[in-house]
């Protein structure tokens, strides 16, 4: 199994719901709490597993705004794992989820340095590295209703821009989407083979238009319409159009 997410940049409106949902679930989750520093002060910040950034592609008036949510890509070649000296970071063999065992981490930051995607954040208060768990504490929890055994970010996304599934299964929704919508990896050249894929904004073909008519002055058009209504009426004898 190769579990991961597909994120549809064509429908993501950049609402941050997934990021806050993630924060909410995980602060009491397996790697919680997700500490917040200076929450009511000058420099509010904290630990997040999922962040949304907003970009502009091209220039006015051809500009397009793109909202890009990013969390751990659960890379196939996750150097964040290989660099980890303590064995705290690991990639689960059965499903490819990359996790941090908090009890083993020494907070050296090396894994964060190794991650191209900014997916790992040190909890300075707790001294350990934290990251997206792909909601491992939901997806396998049989005490949750079946339809809720998914990552919360996926569950909450109001534009259904997030999909969760098994990339090893060619018929899964994620595999199908990637195939049909030219799903791609961010920064592939770094060579981590991220599992999470992004669907590019769609190019819609130009919409058809009705054929243009001659037009004419308002008097001539109204005259024409008056004639038409009279004709229609006469044609039908009583005028049902």
């Amino acid at each position: 199994m190769k579990l991961g997410l597909v994120i549809d940049l064509d429908t993501c409106v950049g609402c941050h719901a997934c990021a806050v949902a993630c924060k909410q679930w995980n602060t009491s989750g397996t790697t919680g709490p997700l500490t917040d520093y200076d929450p009511y002060g000058e420099q509010p910040s904290g630990v997040w597993f999922n962040r949304i950034r907003h970009y502009e592609v091209d220039e006015y008036p051809n500009n397009k705004t793109v909202n890009a949510p990013m969390s751990c890509m659960h890379c196939d070649d996750a150097a964040c794992v290989t660099v980890c000296p303590t064995g705290a970071s690991y990639k689960r063999e059965e499903d490819g989820i990359v996790l941090v065992d908090q009890s083993k981490c020494m907070g050296c930051n090396l894994c964060a340095w190794a991650c191209p995607y900014g997916a790992r954040e040190l909890d300075e208060d707790q001294g350990v590295m934290k990251k997206c768990t792909l909601c491992v504490d939901r997806i396998y929890d049989e005490n949750l209703p079946k339809e809720e055994r998914k990552p919360v970010c996926v569950m909450t996304c109001p534009t259904s821009a997030r999909f969760f599934g098994d990339f090893d299964d060619p018929n899964s929704q994620v595999s199908t989407l990637v195939r049909e919508r030219s799903g791609y990896s961010m920064m592939p050249e770094v060579g981590y083979n991220p599992v999470n894929k992004y669907l590019p904004p769609r190019q819609r073909p130009p919409a058809p238009t009705v054929e243009k008519k001659e037009g004419g002055s308002s008097a001539s058009l109204i005259g024409k319409w008056m004639k038409r209504q009279k004709d229609a009426f006469n044609d039908l004898g009583k005028g049902a159009r």
């Binding site: 509010p44 962040r51 950034r53 907003h54 592609v57 793109v66 890009a68 040190l122 990896s185 961010m186």
Partner: peptide, 22 residues
């Protein structure tokens, strides 16, 4: 390449966090 938009300029509009992060 980071974002996968290689045919035009890409600029950050909003970074999505209020102050410095890790």
């Amino acid at each position: 390449t980071a974002l996968g938009f290689t045919r035009a300029t890409v600029k950050l509009l909003d970074v999505g966090h209020a102050s410095d992060t890790f």
